[in-house]
Amino acid sequence: MIAALTSLTILGVVLGLILGVAARVFRVEGNKLAEEVLGILPGSQCGQCGFPGCAGAAQALAEGRAPVTLCPPGGRAVVLALAAKLGKDADMADVKESVPMIAEVKEEICIGCTRCFKVCPTDAIMGAAQQIHSVFREACTACGKCEEVCPTESIKLQPIPVTLQSWYWHKPLATGSAA
């Protein structure tokens, strides 16, 4: 028991030491700016900007290969922080105020073509050919795929309507943001 405990502990400590020394010896001098930019980005690795994870996006931003408005989940606060960090003008026209959205069918103009529920990745749309479609609110992730294929523009992403159940206190404004 004692032998097992001590030997494993010593093994762990020795390997840890070796790795610690190796980390110093093989240290990679990263781009300082890219690291700071990475600190600003949300870090959720969603890939919506088209780069592989936030680290890739930070690298591209630091090299000036990407606009500061590239991060959809980050919203205004991230755009402003990035613009301040990189000394660029932020083009706020590209930035949508991000509120929770949900797909909604305008029943007057839905022709029941079934295209939207074929593309829906979460099976959130029900309906059949020549029948008016409808959206399961719990399953909709607001990905926007249905909006693209709808021939009559009857299905649209809408902000989730505020009801007594869904109302919430607004978050406090971030300090230093111009908004």
């Binding site: 032998a3 097992a4 190796a22 093989f26 990679v28």
Partner: peptide
């Protein structure tokens, strides 16, 4: 020597993880 062969897999995994980590550092550099 210590008669603790039952800790074999645990010990090996420890060593493997360390070597992989080391390889990763070297390749990164």
């Amino acid at each position: 020597p210590l008669g603790i062969q039952y800790l074999r897999i645990l010990t090996y995994i420890l060593a493997i993880a360390a070597v992989v980590q080391f390889t990763e550092m070297v390749i990164r550099k």
